[in-house]
Design a protein around this nucleic acid. Sequence first.
DNA 1: GCGGACTGCTTACCT
DNA 2: ACAGGTAAGCAGTCCGCG
Length: 854
Amino acid sequence: MRLDYPDSKERPMEGEGGEGGAKELVLVSVAYDGPQRKAVLKFFDPSAQKIVLVPDYTGHEPYCLTDLPPEEVLKIGGIVNHPGFSKVETVKKHDPLADRDVLMTVVFAKDPLSIGGRPSGCIRDLLPRAWEANIRYELNYIYDTGLQPGSAYEVGAGSPPSRKVFSPPAELLDRMREKLRGKDAEYVEAVKSWIELLSQPIPEVKMAALDIEVLSSSRTRIPDPSEADEAVASAAILGTDGRSRFLLLNRPGMEPEEFFVEKNGSKIEPEYFEDEAGLLGAIFEELERYPFLVTFNGDNFDLVYLHNRAKRLGMRAEETPITLGRDYADLKEGIHIDLYKFLFNRSVQIYAFNNAYKEVTLDAVGEALLGLGKVKGVKPIPEMSYREIAEYCLRDAEITLGLATMYDKLLLKLVIMLTRISRMPVEEVVRHSVSAWIRSLFIYDHRARGYLVPRPEDIQSLKGGTVTRAIIKGKKYLGAIVLEPVSGVHFNVVVMDFASLYPSVIMTNNLSYETVRCPHQECRSNRILSSPHWVCTKRRGITSLVIGSLRDLRVNLYSPMSKNPSLPENERKLYDVVQRALKVFLNASYGVMGAEAFSFYCPPLAESVTMLGRQILSDLIDEAKRLGITVVYGDTDSVFLKNPRPEKIELLKEWAVKRYGIDLTVDKNYRYVVFSQRKKNYVGVLEDGSADVKGLVGKKSSTPNFVKNAFFDLLRILGEVKDEEGFERAKIEIKDLASEAVRKLKSGEYKLEDLAFNVMMSRSTEAYTKTTPQHVKVAKQLETGGAELRAGDIISYVKVKGKEGVKPVQTSSHKDIDVEKYMDIIKSTFGQVLDALGIELEEEGKAKKLSDFM
DNA sequence: GCGGACTGCTTACCT
DNA sequence: ACAGGTAAGCAGTCCGCG
């Protein structure tokens, strides 16, 4: 559906026309309509479960800025004669780097590609200096119009969309009112508008999951979607509305079978198509029923294949509902979410899903998050019966739909929340990672204040480099402090940590690219600790303000509210999604400042953050010692306190707020902690007997399963220990555990898969030029055998006797196994815990070599 | 020709 | 295309060794 409005000049005032069916819709995206040369707003209509397209009604044009006066711009022949050139205007902006107002020239164009994006002859390349010329047009449009993606709008036939203003729940406002007392007006306004935006309800969304199969004879090779030279065999489309379809190509020489597969709450029967064009047409028609479509790798496979296959069969591009980008595929009307891209995103993986999955394949993610993997042990599609294809294809769609709907549609809600915070369209959020989200949020804020967005090269040349030296070779500056742990067993250990230390440091020290080493002479004496860097005393830093308000919202509002038992469950769940989304931004906010690719990259800022972090942690340690508390370990923002008196903990909390204005909280209470001499390695047993394991080889994903299982048994034994005496019993049990593992190893009782190391190959085999690690050696063996391997694949191999030393698990047998090597693994894995417990495995004289146990 | 000391590469982890 | 710090194992190199 498409709604058109009269041009901006004659458009009715808000609230005037528009009666006669104004509806409450949610803005989900902004796209660019090439032929119309216009931005198009994509709204979602929850009551009709449809996408409504609204072309631009403001007359907005693409542009970039330059410091050349208009008359000078008009002297550049390449620009005035450029077919896409429109006009020039002047605009006043505030230059944050120089802290002064500047007059800029706006160069308008008829289409975004004329500004930039073509290989040559773009307006931005013809100007000696251009600003804001590398921002995608759709985003520019959002920033200039102040649209809020993810928000509700009143959309009617007569008047342009107007944002619906919500009143947030009273508890939220009450809670924040206290926290905001004494803050400046600018800050209060910022926080209030965030609450208004983030607390809006999320509409119910109808979605479909799509998976297709292709008649490709190779089991190891994925068909090339840009060629699309083999027929589409089937498509499974499962909807959240319970509608389920399985569409199948009937091939010559194969009789249609009658059967059904139970999935998605119904018995799904195959629908046979005699010709492939008919099949594709039916798939497209089905997709158009849904406002949202989820796929797993649809950006690079399913949708691209369907689109190109349709073209190959004689359909025109306009006849498919799909438009292709360079490495993505959009739906013309609906919203496509490629779960592979989103789940591959490191921030999503770590902070939103707590590292629950390691490998991003449909099988691995499905197993990890849903307990449902792909159908195993399959033949190539052409050799399968129709029923087998159905089982296989429908399972993939089932997993995809499951991922999109699990935990009460957490994934989609998270996408919408990230959309709201980043100010990006839903599709852009899914395709980009956290640095693009933060960039978008920052640029939105610059536009709203009339700030010129600085050029990255200007930030760098003005702010210069770093003054500290990193410990790790090749890094740019010094990072955090990690204390040497006091090895041994410590009972009653309290772990305290600072709430969001780095974002808090950024907030409380007014750190921002324009305030660190600001241009004012009089600020130069305001040094950051004993460094040569200084920070501005005259202006509020823009990133400090943005990150600070997000931090306050998470720490003071959404985290506590998500755990508030007096609230209804659905409200708590919404707040939990908000606090997770905020966490993603906060956790990356410091890191991006030190990332060269980030548009606001500022090394002195990143360095100042860790510098202040180090100072704060070492002051905390000093203060704890002054209070007579023994600190047994600490890392970056945490301290492990041995048996502290409760009143001392309170004193530390008070100290942190008074001295640094940063909240220090109790994170964990361990019944006991076991430290070896290694940093970032320990086992902590909580009051309930469950164990936290950090860093140890026994929990690494690459460690063979038989070692991991034995290690978990070890942890279970440790969990039983209540006091010092308990350890004596535990030590004996652990020794027995180790000898039993060795016995089973020697007698060949472990399955080969349990002996396998599982190591991720982070690039393709030929990209390893300096050394050939063991997993790459194995990968090359597999490739010789015909396998196609890609970066990101997990290689499973066993250690064998002989020159090569390693072999793929699939082609090995027990007699090849190098038992001695595996003994070493057991020894070192257990050794990490045992040496801290005073069980010496290799002490001379006492003759307690591990082999002596067996 | 081989082994030990060393450095560098690679992966997986912690905050 | 968020950061730096740490552990572990192996690959590769150098050097001594009559």
